[in-house]
Computed example of a mutant assay.
Amino acid sequence: MEIVVDLDRIGENVEVLRKHLKDPGTRFMAVVKCDAYGHGMVPVARAVQDRVDCFGVGTLEEGVALRQAGIVKPVLVLGPVEDYRTLQGAGLQATIGSWSALELLESQLEGADAPLEVHLKVDTGMHRFGFQPREMEKVLEAVGRQPKVQVRGVYSHFGGTFPKGEARVRRQFAVFSEVEARWRKELEEGVLFHMANSENALDFPASQLDMVRIGNGLFGPCNSRTRAGLSKAARVYGRIVGFQTVEAGECAGYGLSYRVKRPTTLAVLDGGIYEGVGLERGTEGVSGLPGLVQSLKKVLRKLLGRTNLVGGKEGLRVAGPVQMQFTLVDLGLPEEKAFRRFKLGDAVEIRQAPLYLKESVRRIYSKEEE
């Protein structure tokens, strides 16, 4: 099993997204957290470092890995950090979004020689991390008492996108706009105010502000309603490792849940649940109509015996549930015709987001790393 990543296409997506910025001077952060959404953090960062202004990562470990790989542009750690000395030593920027984080930073930086650059996070309604807007005056007073702490940005995180979440998006942005209006003049010139992710940078240009944080948009069409012209940057393939001929009326797969209607040939692909194949967004925790719609779609796919898991011109179907290490695919052909068209080792495309696949799945890059 393998993921083929087109690094040139990722670079092209950066340029496409830049054309949608209202102000050419707006900074562009490439968010490469979670191993660049499964595409490979270091190769992706190296491929786009000359096209972007800075990087965003989820953890301290990811930031250190970028530095060790030779990435020298600013790197903001978007998640909580427990070791600010290591972060400081690696020349990374920290997110401060709680009083406990601020207290920990103060205790660990006591006696430090080098400055630490931070971005302050404001909770505008997502309620995950961030100071409340009403706390900002006290926060800035506390930060001001730390001579080694330099504020480089103030930001927030949208909890939704257009069109379904438009009202919530506008509400959050209004809150952040009040923070910006109140504090921009109070802070040093050059402090960046930023909030837009991929979707809202495209669908809600007013939210672009000083910088956009682009994650999934780097890798192809995201959940934006704007047809931006982004291209899919990766494809997932399973290799055929076996065949089975099955007669009409027989059943196959886990639970013998796949009934064959006519004589056919099944192909066995390497890769299954263990590698992350078939993982999809669940309905747990999704309430109301959205959760109901997701559940109905799952049931309908099962009733119709259809799946969007396996692609290609053949229009193949997965035969039963994805298995632990393998995936059964119905080739829809009797034995003689199947063996004329397919052979052991052939690659079959799987419609699967790389994000869900383990790091152990081989990544192949179409551009040589420098």
Results as ranks from 00 to 15, higher is better:
Val348Tyr: 06
Leu304Ala: 08
Gly320Lys: 05
Ala347Asn: 05
Glu314Asp: 14
Glu349Phe: 05
Gly305Gln: 13
Phe326Glu: 12
Ser366Ala: 06
Ala353Pro: 02
Phe342Gln: 11
Phe339Tyr: 12
Arg363Gly: 03
Leu300Ser: 13
Leu303His: 03
Tyr365Gln: 13
Leu289Trp: 06
Gly345Phe: 10
Ser360Pro: 06
Ala338Thr: 01
Gly332Pro: 09
Glu368Tyr: 01
Leu328Ser: 02
Arg340Thr: 10
Thr307Asp: 14
Thr327Glu: 04
Pro354Ser: 07
Ile350Val: 15
Leu303Asp: 04
Ala347Pro: 00
Arg362Ala: 13
Phe339Leu: 15
Gln352Phe: 07
Phe342Thr: 04
Val299Leu: 04
Gly315Cys: 05
Lys337Cys: 03
Ala319Ser: 04
Glu359Gln: 14
Leu357His: 07
Gly312Thr: 12
Glu336His: 14
Gly320Asp: 03
Asp346Ser: 14
Val361Arg: 09
Lys298Ile: 09
Ile350Trp: 07
Leu289Gly: 00
Pro354Thr: 06
Leu357Thr: 02
Lys337His: 08
Val348Lys: 12
Ala353Gln: 07
Ala338Met: 08
Gly320Phe: 02
Gly311Glu: 11
Ser295Val: 08
Glu335Gly: 06
Arg362Tyr: 02
Glu335Thr: 11
Leu292Pro: 09
Lys313Tyr: 10
Phe326Thr: 15
Thr327Gly: 04
Ser366Leu: 15
Gln352Leu: 01
Leu304Cys: 11
Arg301Ala: 10
Asp330His: 07
Tyr356Thr: 15
Tyr356Cys: 11
Ile350Lys: 01
Gln325His: 14
Leu309Pro: 08
Phe339Ile: 03
Gln323Gly: 13
Gly345Asn: 11
Ala353Lys: 07
Lys337Pro: 01
Gly311Thr: 08
Leu292Val: 15
Val329Pro: 08
Tyr356Met: 12
Leu316Asn: 08
Ile364Trp: 02
Val329Trp: 05
Gly291Phe: 03
Leu331Gln: 06
Val299Glu: 09
Val322Met: 05
Gly312Phe: 11
Lys367Tyr: 03
Phe339Gln: 11
Pro354Tyr: 05
Thr307Arg: 06
Val299His: 00
Gly320Ile: 08
Gly305Tyr: 12
Ala338Cys: 05
Leu300Cys: 09
Arg317Asn: 09
Arg351His: 13
Leu333Ala: 01
Ala353Val: 04
Leu292Glu: 15
Leu328Tyr: 10
Leu303Gln: 10
Val322His: 00
Gln323Met: 15
Arg301Cys: 11
Val348Ser: 08
Pro290Arg: 09
Gly312Trp: 14
Gly320Thr: 08
Leu309Gly: 06
Lys343Met: 06
Leu355Gln: 04
Gln325Ile: 02
Asp346Lys: 14
Glu368Ser: 12
Gly320Trp: 01
Val348Cys: 07
